[in-house]
């Protein structure tokens, strides 16, 4: 269990560092991105583990994103870097890529199958994965950005 937890945190940290590199952050931001992403992703892992939180992926992502958002806002004055610099790359490892892939796959397969049974099967895959994907994204975005708006005085004064 601890091994899986650390494994999850480690790979989330690498993903956050790599994806933050695309958005050209200040050099000191990398370590914060790694720490916040590791904390957020491993928190989601714990929340979804049957022995701990046993939560569904949608509420677990929303709660984990809230943790990521709060950490980003709290740490931004320490680093003197805007909260979004940490927040957005740290949320990226939680983007439901495989659900999105299956959603699009389901849609594509719908278009190439005429028989009712096959069409309904692929339409089910499309809608099921699509709803889960959309719900995760909404939970993630709202959970992650809410602290920036609730703690405006901290978030927008970080670079002072």
């Amino acid at each position: 269990m601890i091994e899986k937890f650390l494994y999850d945190a480690f790979f989330a940290a690498i993903a956050a560092i790599g994806f933050s590199a695309i958005s050209n952050p200040p050099k000191t931001a990398y370590i914060y991105c790694a720490l916040i992403a590791a904390a957020g992703h491993s928190a989601r892992f714990l929340l979804m583990t049957p022995e701990v939180g046993a939560l569904n992926i949608i509420p677990a992502t929303a709660v984990a994103s809230l943790i990521v958002g709060c950490l980003a806002v709290i740490l931004s004055p320490v680093a003197k870097i805007p909260a979004e610099t940490f927040l957005f790359p740290s949320l990226l490892p939680m983007i439901p890529g495989i659900y999105a892939y299956k959603t699009f796959g389901g849609l594509a397969m719908c278009l190439f199958h005429d028989s009712e049974t096959d069409f309904l099967h692929y339409f089910y895959l499309f809608s099921n994965n699509g709803f889960v994907c959309l719900s995760i994204i909404i939970g993630m975005v709202v959970g992650g950005t809410l602290p920036v708006f609730l703690l405006k005085r901290i978030a927008y004064r970080a670079t002072r």
Binding site: Y7, D8, F11, I17
Partner: peptide
């Protein structure tokens, strides 16, 4: 940013992403 560093970092990130999935 240094293009080689970004290329390497993004490749590592996507590889790590695969492990997370």
């Amino acid at each position: 940013a240094n293009a080689v560093w970004v290329l390497f970092a993004v490749s590592c990130a996507n590889g790590a992403f695969c492990r997370l999935f």
